[in-house]
Design a protein around this nucleic acid. Structure first.
Lengths: 248, 248
DNA sequence: CGGGATGTTGAGGCAAGTCAATCTAAGTGG
DNA sequence: CCACTTAGATTGACTTGCCTCAACATCCCG
């Protein structure tokens, strides 16, 4: 870890991400215990939160910023398993665990960090929270099923369309315009998440622009000019509703 | 469901799959409760256990046989998200849930079925079991990460090698020879699981035969004549150890 | 001993990958 | 404030691994 853990969060009640995070499921008395366990930590952009295979000592709830989760092969091939943002749980819940993926900040990152064994003890003492987490994990499995369908059976255009719509849905509950999608990650990350190359990602964006499906005012912003058409393209059975994510 | 639920299991103590199933984590007193909730059910080969989108009323622990879990696109493209066998948990744990995948028996299937809400209540009353299940779900997420790497970044040969080794590892704890791998599923299932076509699967098997990596005495059996070479090919970081699986 | 389902093999095509050149944006230092 | 550098993104030309289509082989079960 590149960044020492700091102080307790001063105030959970007015925390902006709490409504969308695991902590919202904890009743007031438990909340005080949880807050006393938490330590705020900052990871600057590009810093590594943990490395594939390393021993995990903490669990994090993301407050601000985003991380990419990925696995590497010895020859450098990379699969990005997901992106985590505000409200998401990073690091998994097994008490003794080595990181299955690497996690790296793709913007300046603020997190609440917890000692794994303390967090686990807290879980065990809060069956309701435990059940909630089970549902979160279950949702993550379903999301991974969808991603397997994307990687195994969808064309480049379908993958990109699906990706844009999922990103769009991700920020809807925070009240952002769902038709203006920010892309905090570079093209190489999109490629490695969707099982494509940066060239194919770029070409597909170009094709979408030409067909009037999207506009790309700058490389980090996409405007969905024709969301319904994208939706058809993406080949979703049902739009997965926005959810709290978990990654490890 | 094509098959009415039958009687309680007569005897959990001598159950052959219990050591490898969730029930092994339940202490004797809870076990009696669990047994009284269980109903044995049979699904003949090819029968549908549940359909994508249908309302789930039960959770199943598989006693004998195997199922494929898959999602379909309107045009017929299929992604098999996994195969479940003895000891695995089928149907997920959310109390109110529609099936995210379809589940179909690929051999005659025997299961212990539980009413979802009763099972959930039992879970809530058994924090230890709940934590265990959380670990199982976590392991499933990690397995899906690996599968994403396979689908997004691995060549056909690497995919097939990985698949064979995972199948081999799956049956090791039951004491089967890990170098003789049974393939209960047809080639089309392997293809739809690995994001390939049946032709590519067949051709890759042929290439492996030619290189002396495997022998294929009949279409449903593969002998790993050179497991270490397959292991290199598969591009695993570490061999995922055998685990209890969960699917929904 | 048929006949349908499943598996294998071959020929040719194409979607996406590879390689390479160019363009753009964001810093950085003089 | 502007030349210079560098990382990231785009575009084009070419290649290729896998898919598609088609023919044939094999297995299984009545």
């Amino acid at each position: 870890m590149h960044c020492a853990l700091g102080s307790k969060p001063p105030d959970c009640v007015h925390c902006t991400v709490r409504p969308h995070a695991l902590c919202s499921q904890v009743e007031p008395t438990g909340m005080e215990t949880l807050r006393s366990m938490a330590r705020i930590a900052l990871f600057p952009n590009r810093s590594v939160v943990f490395d594939q295979g390393s021993v995990l000592r903490n669990v994090f709830i993301i407050t601000r910023g985003m991380v990419r989760l990925f696995r590497l092969m010895p020859d450098g091939r990379r699969q990005i398993t997901g992106f985590l943002g505000p409200g998401d749980l990073l690091g998994g819940i097994k008490v003794k665990a080595n990181a299955h993926c690497s996690a790296q900040a793709i913007s300046d990152l603020v997190v609440c960090g917890f000692d794994r064994s303390s967090f686990s003890a807290f879980l065990q003492a809060n069956p309701t929270l435990c059940m909630t987490l089970l549902v979160v994990a279950t949702d993550e499995i379903e999301a991974q099923y969808d991603h397997a369908m994307l990687l195994g059976r969808k064309h480049a255009a379908e993958r990109i369309a699906a990706f844009l719509l999922l990103l769009s849905a991700r920020w809807k509950p925070i009240g952002l315009n769902p038709n203006v999608v920010g892309l905090p990650m570079p093209r190489s990350d999109i490629a490695d998440h969707l099982g494509l190359t940066i060239e194919t990602v770029s070409r597909t964006f170009a094709k979408f622009k030409q067909s009037g499906l999207i506009e790309v005012p700058d490389a980090k912003t996409v405007i969905l000019s024709n969301a319904p058409a994208l939706y058809d393209l993406a080949g979703f059975e049902e739009l997965p509703d926005s959810r709290m994510a978990i990654g490890m």
